[in-house]
Design a protein around this nucleic acid. Structure first.
Lengths: 208, 208
DNA sequence: GGGCGATTAAAACAAACGTTTTAAAGACAT
DNA sequence: ATGTCTTTAAAACGTTTGTTTTAATCGCCC
């Protein structure tokens, strides 16, 4: 029996393969091959391919979401007691946990690619799961930003938050875009991404 | 024989299905079913599924790319003769053709969803095709923006252009994100998108 | 009408897929 | 050692897939 449990090995393999190849582009035989597990083990531990995807997403997004929620709630509390909070502080609270995940391991960075895939796959198996897991975070972000930018129309704010999500999601995929040879920045470590993304988004959100 | 050629019917069907379900999520039998054509007709006219995707992309991106090139080149000429051009004018030259495509038909709008999918699918069959077709446009955009923002570090500009691409791509998918009930803006007509996206991106690009 | 190339139709092929079935092995407690 | 539950293994199942094969139909020209 390996040090790492079969279940975890399957999750790790699935996460990586779903991220690199997409959900439909990944067969369970590929997952089990990489995990050194048996096909029936997937069904024993997870029941179905789709439930495996759910588990892959929850494993990352539940703790990430909790972290974001905690950070954003702290900011809301501070604002309620009269403290002035900057847009970029709110953005960091939302984006920071994702960046730290990317930084913590290559696997974490790969997960962001899976998120990008899911965002671009309406009607696909991951999107409703994702919306359910991340929706509350987005709502909290909207509330926090609205508090910081009280004069900004709420519909426009919603639009701008989506622009932010798009920019963020795409930038986290940049390290994985070999098709864009020569049109991809050299350095794609997460600190660099954050250092460039936040000012861009801050200015965008504060635009007249 | 129908008014519309078999080949075109297949292209139309494939475009819509690839956009709505993804390349891998769409079988050729689905395509032929919607096109009212026979399976062998796909191979007769296109050779393979992957070549069909290539044709779907070229059908839209070649004219779109030519239009963008013409508009961006006109701007470059004007700048070379000393005229002052704004960031937002350059952005409109790049984004405008896409928006007009979306506006021209529901099918055009759906195509943008296919683009979003491709951007999020590194290593997938569409991305290299896309990069080849759109890469030159992006290079031209970079040149035009660099001319307008001469003090902006070129690496940072490249990053910001990618943020723009991400924001644009995601926003064009918004009409297709049923999973985000309640977190999607009500009105998603292209004029609205453009009216909100351009100021956001302009400010982001001009950020300190 | 016949000939020829273009185009479509339908069946077949080989492989791949997620799920199911059956049984064996492993782990733990008595 | 035995019993029981958990976990893994391997084969099988039924369906789907892109591609190929064979033949018929269509369209055009002489």
């Amino acid at each position: 029996m390996s040090m790492v449990e079969t279940k975890t090995r399957i999750l790790d393999a699935a996460e990586g393969l779903f991220a690199r190849q997409g959900y439909l582009g990944t067969s369970l035989r590929q997952v089990t091959g990489e995990a050194g597990a048996n096909l029936a083990a997937v069904h024993y531990h997870f029941g179905s391919k789709e439930t495996l995807l759910q588990s892959v997403l929850e494993r990352r997004l539940l703790p990430l979401g909790a972290e974001r929620e905690a950070e954003l709630n702290r900011l809301l509390v501070r604002m309620e007691s009269g403290e002035v909070v900057e847009v970029e502080t709110v953005l960091e609270a939302f984006i920071g946990p994702t960046m730290r995940l990317c930084e913590s391991s290559a696997r974490g960075a790969e997960f962001s690619l899976l998120v990008g895939r899911i965002l671009a796959d309406p009607g696909g198996p991951g999107q409703e799961m994702f919306a359910e897991l991340v929706g509350p975070n987005i709502e909290l972000l909207l509330r926090a930003l609205q508090a910081v930018l009280p004069d900004l129309d709420s519909e426009l704010l919603l639009w701008r938050v989506h622009f932010c999500l798009g920019a963020m999601s795409h930038s986290l995929c940049l390290g994985h875009l070999p098709g864009f040879q020569g049109l991809v920045p050299q350095s794609v470590d997460t600190q660099t991404v954050l250092g460039r993304l936040i000012p861009f988004l801050t200015s965008g959100l504060e635009a007249p």
